Simulated assay, not measured.
Amino acid sequence: MTITKNTIVTLDCRLSETSGNLLEDSQELIYLHGGYGQIFKPLEEALEGKKVGDTFRVEIPAAEAFGEFDANLVLTESLDELPEEIKVGMEIDGYIEENPDDTVLYVVTAIADGHATLDANHPLAGKNLVFEGRVEEIVEVSEEAVQEILEHAHDEDHH
């Protein structure tokens, strides 16, 4: 059986930067194949037609992965305006002035001189990524099952 539209695919996957820096070693990734936006498009395209046991290696530039690093998403705030228990690595909900209705997640990246640096970029923003691994399992699913999976994924996005 090969990877085609409406198959659930299980991958054993490693994620690294094109520089060779390993980000995640041997992660299981399960997704619904067929252009549903569950994985990055270049990766999905490379997996089309593969069989169990096949290996893959796909390079994805930052712009097509988690986006370029955006310096506008980095803020410095006075500690007076932030929770007292703030520490580096903590996540804080906030918003961007241009669009106060959209909440964004900031990560505290530094604390110094009475100020904290907050970064709303995805941790992998600006990184050119390499996905490599092996196809472990391919399961065909019915149209009904596909709809259930998509509805469930849609519900998860809005919680």
Rank of each mutant, 00 (worst) to 15 (best):
T4Y: 08
K5F: 03
T7R: 03
L11A: 01
E17H: 13
L22D: 04
Y31S: 04
L32F: 02
Y36C: 01
F40N: 01
K41D: 10
P42Q: 03
L43P: 07
E44A: 05
E45K: 15
A46R: 09
E48C: 08
E48H: 13
G53R: 11
T55C: 14
F56E: 09
E59V: 03
P61V: 04
P61Y: 01
A63K: 04
A63Y: 13
F66K: 00
D70S: 02
D70V: 06
A71T: 04
N72W: 11
L73D: 03
V74S: 08
L75K: 14
T76Q: 10
S78C: 09
S78L: 13
D80E: 11
L82F: 05
E84A: 13
K87R: 15
K87A: 14
M90S: 11
D93M: 12
I96G: 05
N99W: 07
D101L: 09
D102K: 15
T103V: 12
L105Y: 00
Y106Q: 14
V107M: 10
V108F: 08
A110E: 14
I111P: 04
I111Q: 11
A116C: 13
T117E: 15
D119I: 11
A120H: 00
H122F: 04
P123R: 04
V130S: 00
E136T: 04
I138K: 03
V139K: 10
E143D: 13
E143L: 07
E144Q: 11
A145T: 15
V146T: 15
L150E: 13
E151N: 11
